[in-house]
Design a protein around this nucleic acid. Structure first.
Lengths: 157, 157
DNA sequence: GGATAATAGTTATAGTCAATAACTATTAAT
DNA sequence: ATTAATAGTTATTGACTATAACTATTATCC
């Protein structure tokens, strides 16, 4: 009987039971995310971007004139934590900030040409990295996954 | 033309474009997780558990005699960060720690009856909370989601 | 029209969490 | 028997998130 109680198989791979935990959506989501995130972080770091600054840049690129509050809403983060990120993107010449004439409290954010190009390139790299990790989870499953995740997100609100 | 450029619809709902970002698996996973996590945290807090301590307790309950290194491996966390969590679970009488006679470096972890009961109850509550959030995403989609996430996780290694 | 509320952006700060290094005790490898 | 590696522990650090407090500006409502 080769099955011992040391919780590992013959290849040293853990065989830890997690049926209860593993049946929770939150657990599976987090673990799946933990596979992807470090790689995304790595490729983005090559362009001196963090995941969060890439996300900001990407939303700004697709929503010319968006203001910080709206951006914070969209990314579900605190306005206050956005400030330094926006500062850096502006200093690097990836976005511009200009006062909204009709409401001088607000700043309209716009991606520069450099910003848009960097976004496009970075997005492509992240997408490629993801594809390598998931071993080209076939297109149908990928599409279904994305649709279900999107719905899950929508339902939650 | 009611469509303005303020990135919100008539109900104040944001209509921010995120096609590039939204097509990344990592982004969708994170956002889906962010819907679930706070609720899981909330129901677990009712039993003075954090997500991570619940996860530990659950794995221990299903793997009698597991040692800390194996647990850290299973949950993909650092051994060092486990220590305080294990300490607390032991102090609360939810698990026991006893030296492994054949290897005195290791401690065998076992859930007590109280520990197992708490785990079962807490898992049930988390599961219920998840179901409420996802609005009973139908069983077929749920099963498919879990299967794909599991595969995604496996492929990544 | 003027007092009061709310909103946008900012700053500073505190709490949480994960990662790292260094250490002791014990076992495995050569 | 010496050297390596492993298990658990402690302390510390850096990153990230949340919160409160503040200024400037706009919206609300008597």
């Amino acid at each position: 009987m080769p099955q011992t109680d040391d919780h590992s198989d013959d290849r040293g791979r853990p065989t830890v039971e997690d049926t209860v935990l593993g049946d929770l959506i939150g657990y599976r989501l987090k673990r799946a995310y933990m596979q992807i995130q470090p790689e995304a972080q790595r490729v983005l770091a090559e362009d001196d971007l963090r995941v969060v600054s890439f996300s900001c840049l990407s939303i700004i690129a697709d929503n010319t004139g968006i203001v910080q509050s709206e951006l914070a809403d969209a990314l579900q983060m605190e306005r206050s934590n956005l400030v330094v990120i926006i500062d850096e993107l502006e200093q690097r010449g990836l976005i511009t900030r200009k006062k909204v004439p009709t409401d001088r409290r607000r700043y309209a954010l716009t991606a520069t040409l450099r910003g848009r190009r960097l976004r496009d390139r970075a997005a492509e790299k992240v997408r490629t990295a993801e594809d390598q990790i998931i071993g080209r989870l076939d297109d149908k499953d990928r599409a279904h996954l994305m649709a279900v995740l999107q719905r899950l997100e929508d339902k939650a609100r």
